[in-house]
C-alpha cells in the first residue's frame, strides 16, 4: 500500500475537503492505484536533471507599477455569497 485511509484523511484536511466515510474508502483505493502507477518515474535516473516548471523559457515579466482601471467594488462583490455593508465579503466568525 502506498497510502492508507489515515493518510487520506490527513490530505483531505489539508485540501479543506469534507469526505464522507465511503468517499474516503474509495479515494484510498483509487489514490493507491494511481500512486502505484506514478512510481514508474523512479525507473528513471534524474540525477543532475533540472526540473521544468514552464515549457517556454522565460525571464520574469515586469511591468510599470501604474494605477489602472479595475472592475470596481460593486462588480467585485457581485458574486459573493454574503456581503457586509457596501464593501466587504462576509465570512463566518473566525475568532470566538
Amino acid at each position: 500500500m502506498k497510502i492508507n485511509q489515515k493518510d487520506v484523511e490527513h490530505v483531505a484536511r489539508l485540501a479543506r475537503l469534507n469526505l464522507e466515510p465511503q468517499e474516503l474508502e474509495v479515494m484510498t483505493v483509487q489514490m493507491d492505484a494511481i500512486l502505484g502507477y506514478v512510481d514508474k518515474l523512479n525507473e528513471l535516473d534524474t540525477e543532475g536533471i533540472e526540473p521544468t516548471a514552464h515549457a517556454v523559457p522565460m525571464a520574469n515579466a515586469f511591468r510599470e507599477d501604474e494605477i489602472r482601471p479595475s472592475i470596481g467594488i460593486e462588480l467585485a462583490l457581485g458574486n459573493a455569497p454574503m456581503v457586509a455593508g457596501e464593501s466587504c465579503f462576509q465570512v463566518p466568525k473566525v475568532i470566538e
Binding site: 493518510d7 490530505v11 485540501a15 500512486l35 518515474l41 534524474t46 536533471i49 521544468t52
Partner: peptide, 26 residues
C-alpha cells in the same frame, strides 16, 4: 485535488512533484 495536495505535501514534494518536473525536462 487530493492527489495534487498529496504530491505537494511535506515529505512527498521531492519524491513526486519535483521528480515529475525533472521527467518533464527529459
Amino acid at each position: 485535488i487530493m492527489l495534487g495536495t498529496y504530491a505537494l505535501s511535506s515529505g512527498y514534494y521531492d519524491a513526486y512533484y519535483l521528480k515529475a518536473q525533472k521527467v518533464r525536462t527529459l
